[in-house]
Amino acid sequence: MTTILDTTTGQPATGTTPPGVRRPRIRLRAEPGRSRHSTRTKALVISGLVLFTVYSLAPVWWLIVAATKSRGELYTSNGLWFTDINLWNNLKDLFTYQDGIFLRWMGNTLFYGVVGTAGMTLVCVACGYGLAMYEFRGRGFLMGCIIGSFLVPGALLTIPSFLLFTDLGMVDTATAMIVPSFFNAFSVYLAKVYAEGAIPPELLEAARIDGAGEYRIFFQIGARLMSTGAATIFLLGFVGMWNSFFGPLVFLRSSEKWTVMLGLYSWLKVKTDSSVDLVSLVVVGSIISLIPMVILMLSMQRYWRTGVTLGSLK
């Protein structure tokens, strides 16, 4: 499969691809094939997609409606339609609660997410590149370690990791969130298969003949060819960091350092054992917390248009 991959993955496709065309270079041949889609097939395709989209999005509708309600209405009115529009008050409450701690959580998460994921992408792409492009002793063993680590239940590592972090003086520091996230086995696996798909060995060979050093080849050729894959790794990593909850719960102490998900969780749990009830804040906070993700996804769209990205996975 890797042999038939388009190797010009580095660049996004030209912006104005007419609808109904798979790829510019085969425009003439593809079009007659496409046009054979009967209207019935087309209608079926679209209604199928609409059905799946409704399934995906309908649950979010409740969240949006709930965000506009006051606490009393939230519990007693119909959840699927608006009653009193209390959105501004909810937003104001959200951003002023406890001196605006929610913004602080958003900031923390962004910081941990960007720094942690950027570092992770660099470390893991380099590692995947090394594993894919070079033959060396122990390579199979290292690959085995990576695959094997997928199988380890996280529950097993919690307490030992805590003891380790304590001895390293990392508990309750940003380091505990950022540094361990650099070493993501799944990302290495992805990077390896990307590298195999995106970098023709002949290209490296040619560069070597030109006298380029191995590190220079990586930064000037390898990294560039892998940029789409790296972007995907970054995206998946960032989604993971943004949603991370268990790590912060165990390794962070003071609420000023929490991530947004941990904060929302604590607000959600407040109600079960006290008279305070912050569910309306949780609902609004959930929506606000999605904004950075949506922005990221939108900005990643152009990388996906090239078609290859995750396609080379095997």
Partner: peptide, 19 residues
């Protein structure tokens, strides 16, 4: 090969420590 293997060093150091 050695230089190639060195690309994997940062990851596996961290992997050894944290996993």
């Amino acid at each position: 090969a050695l230089k190639g293997a060195s690309f994997t060093v940062p990851f596996f150091l961290g992997f050894a420590l944290f996993t």
